[in-house]
Design a binder for these strands. Structure first.
Lengths: 199, 199
DNA sequence: CAATAAACGGACCGCGCGGTCAACTTGCTA
DNA sequence: TAGCAAGTTGACCGCGCGGTCCGTTTATTG
């Protein structure tokens, strides 16, 4: 029973400031910005950061958890869209758009992350599987790709554009479109390797 | 005029040992293994490592340079293959296969790297452009993708599989096949964003 | 085989990191 | 508005990193 009494007003505000600062800092400069920089950006002391998040990883986990949950909500809403193929594309668009900029990828090895994150991630993965199954049944996706494939390919558009120096902010759409065309049944060539069991 | 006299026999051997150890270590444990670990793996002192490579980045650059050059050789040989579409696929296969495991990506911002690496990379990129142009003229690749697109997508198969915990070593082939299907003209949908000028 | 320059190695240095703590400030409540 | 728990802070700690340096070892060569 962790009956958490409500945060004091200033503490709640500072927590939000820290999360916002961290999200921006991670996005702009990658996952190894120092906690000192994050605290400075939030206009707070380093000690305050560690009062709210025991560890740098916990801070990251809190951000990632929010994003995964938000993404899962979008996915679930799309589960009963009229056009399952369009719904899957829309989901992938939302996913790439949300975690634009640098990575923050949620596809990390289990051990590295908080149990809450792992749980949320698995739920989101289940949603993706459903979206893919529906799209496949509807003939919008080739028969030989699985939910696991789509999960793995989900981050690729952002990854790919992260290497072009002054990329326009929506360049990723181009690569999502190419990859999505690769998922379509028309003109599909047989795949040389079975899908992974994992995600 | 840097008239470099030949290395002493043991020094030459140790240089090779260091390059091999670094390549393995980078591949297995990522780019931020310590130089101490690399030296230990090579069975040499840390000082020796720094005698051969002034900086950790120089060591990385030496490895990357080798790979880029090797890849460029493969690409140039494929330039007059009978089937330009198959040649492009073969090139991408060689690229992914060579730099399997962890990243070592050669698509980094210019400033980060040695001038030699940048030169080699640009040459390799020109080869890719030629391979793509030939494949496009031959109808093996959709008309709206460019060499720059292919360069960006080149590393995606390895990236994507790097997230599955105990991935079979050739799982990347599956995602290369999917992406390559996305590059084909059959069933291509118009792309939502112009290609980047950059690479 | 002696002489010598080249190569080696590991103790050492300074830095910046994630994380701690005790003195101080502040919002809440009775 | 007094009292106090909750919250804040920045100096501080230990660590491991990339990189240096110099006493020692070794391949080469006349």
């Amino acid at each position: 029973m962790t009956s958490t009494r409500p945060l004091r007003a200033d503490a709640a505000r500072n927590r939000r400031l820290l999360l916002a600062a961290a999200a921006e800092e991670f996005a702009e400069r990658g996952l190894d910005v120092s906690v000192a920089d994050i605290a400075r950006r939030a206009g707070l002391g380093k000690g305050t950061l560690f009062r709210h998040f025991a560890t740098k990883d916990d801070l990251l986990a809190a951000i990632v958890l929010d994003r995964i949950d938000a993404l899962n909500v979008v996915g679930e809403q799309l589960l009963d869209a009229a056009d399952p193929g369009a719904a899957l594309l829309e989901f992938l668009t939302a996913a790439a758009d949300q975690q634009r900029q640098r990575d923050l990828s949620f596809l990390q090895e289990a051990g590295e992350l908080n149990a809450d994150v792992i749980r949320a991630r698995e739920q989101m993965f289940r949603t993706v599987h459903k979206l893919v199954d529906r799209a496949r049944e509807h003939g919008a996706v080739r028969v030989d790709v699985t939910g696991a494939d789509v999960i793995l390919l989900m981050c690729a558009p952002n990854y790919v554009t992260s290497y072009v120096p002054d990329a326009p902010p929506d360049l990723w759409q181009r690569y999502l479109a190419i990859i999505f065309d690769g998922l379509r049944p028309e003109g599909a060539h047989p795949l040389p390797h079975p899908p992974p069991a994992a995600p």
